[in-house]
Design a protein around this nucleic acid. Structure first.
Lengths: 136, 136
DNA sequence: GTATCTGCAAAACATTTGCAATTCT
DNA sequence: AGAATTGCAAATGTTTTGCAGATAC
């Protein structure tokens, strides 16, 4: 579990001034790892920060993205999710329970290099299907 | 270039009754291969079909998707694109010129099988970066 | 005390829905 | 005529913008 001190440092290092709203939003992303939507972040954090507005959630997430400490996941249309894990990894969404799981991949970078002439900066991979629990 | 006769047959085979609007939209998707947005389809086809409405474009694309002859691409948030090529392939979006290119991949299916316990039904891959022209 | 950040309300967009008019057979 | 399709207008939902008040340095 990452603590608020560490979070404050990460934000500062990445040119995001650490307000309480920004720290709590980053904390939620990095500790819960649920790839939440704006709605989820807003409704959970409103309990702790009763005056929080969705505008601030949007502003904050956009600032995180601009400064490279969060990525936007567009796994499903009309359901923008956010992820503070910016390492190369893929996502698996269970079409039954709706949960999103992470997985590592090795071979994709190799594959990416095959596309020569193109300069690849971002690499997004997601699968959809049924997770272990839902298949039982 | 696929002709309207062939398009009519494909739609019929897939339980979509071939109206002029539906045929023209499918023709645009399959022949132009530009992975257009609703807006692009609407503004281009309005010239030929002046009474065309966006509602019909949306209804038609949803019918195509339900019947498995078109896939939705969610490469960027707030920019839903459509593709009548339903074979397994990846997309590369140039962040400079905005164009979307196709590419084949072989190794991903192998990779997918590594995630055992999970039943994978759909496999989406996209890269972002600079295309050949924009790098010059 | 000046900059920045927050959050309300309104605006801007994208997509869906209800329904009447049109088209097809 | 009867059933399906089209397209307008209104509704819904999401994200952005404008701006006034609050907060931080």
């Amino acid at each position: 579990m990452m603590e608020l001190n560490t979070i404050s440092d990460i934000l500062k290092k990445n040119n995001v001034k650490p307000s309480i709203q920004r720290m709590k939003i980053y904390e939620y992303l990095i500790n819960k790892k649920t790839h939440p939507t704006v709605e989820e972040i807003y409704s959970v954090l409103s309990k702790e920060l009763p005056t929080l507005s969705k505008t601030t959630v949007y502003n904050t997430l956009n600032a995180f993205i601009e400064n490279g400490i969060t990525q936007m996941l567009t796994i499903d249309e009309n359901e923008t999710r956010y992820d503070a894990d910016i390492s190369d990894h893929g996502h698996f969404k269970c079409t039954n329970c709706g949960k999103v799981f992470d997985f590592r991949f090795e071979k994709l970078n190799y594959e990416a290099k095959q596309l020569d002439g193109y300069e690849i900066k971002e690499c997004h991979v997601y699968f959809k299907g049924m997770c272990k629990k839902c298949r039982k």
